[in-house]
Amino acid sequence: MISDRNALLSVRNLGKNYPGFRLGELSFDLAEGTITGFIGRNGAGKTTTINSILSFIRPDSGEVLYRGIPFRQKEHEIREKIGFVSAGMTYYTRKKLKTITEVTRSFYPGWKQDIYKKTMDMFCLSEDKTPAELSNGMKIKYALTLALSRGAELFILDEPTSGLDPVSREELVEAFLRLKDEGKTILFSTHITSDLEKCADRILFIRAGKLKADEDLDGFRRSFRIIEASDPIPPELAAVSRGSCRTKDGYTVLVSHADAAPFSGRDAALEEIMVHLEKEEEA
């Protein structure tokens, strides 16, 4: 965990109960100027966590601190500093971007019109279009533009690259890296882990509402190895397995780096770690 002094956003013991699902006492920090990947399978609790951070839903326990200040205490001021972008969010599809921008701008005294113009040009966005006329990738770029123009420091992205083609995803990842270069902080929730491999500094892995990993990306990847195994999996390998997946030639088995020495293996990709750990849970 990052020390409170360096944390832009701190989540402390965040909990939310639903019938059949419990988000359990999550705690983590987002360091300023970093990209944090938030991974987990569908229904693991990523969106519930984000909605709780943004107060879209009311958590049953815990608190969210922004630069050490409780979110609830200065909700308006803190909201100004947070840009939220979700792939599933398409508002006012028949209104021109110009209208949406004008309305949005009126709420932010510190609106930076020069940044808005520059970013609209950079993303090749036209104010005369409506969201309905934009591709999914362009909608996300427009949402990013609005957030940037009002001086957001923290970008919370909920599955922003879902449903996009590889080229559009690449463009967005580049945009996220540019934001990071400018000192912005990003929480990037996704299950397309290959996007995170290109840009994330840190990984939060959530499973069934519980945070299972909070590490820097390289450290997280280095802590596991993938071993190719025949069918059946040898007992000595099965004993240290952290999850296995069937392949056409046998199995791939995830083992902790410390247990991997006796076996011939390779580095694990983020997606392999996530999938195998999920399998471990199911087993």
């Binding site: 308006h76 909201r79 979700s86 969010m89 508002y91 006012y92 599809t93 709420f107």
Partner: peptide, 14 residues
């Protein structure tokens, strides 16, 4: 249908 609440609640308003 226009996800108005999602937009409004990201504004600095209660």
């Amino acid at each position: 249908e226009n996800h108005d609440a999602a937009y409004t609640l990201t504004l600095p308003v209660s």
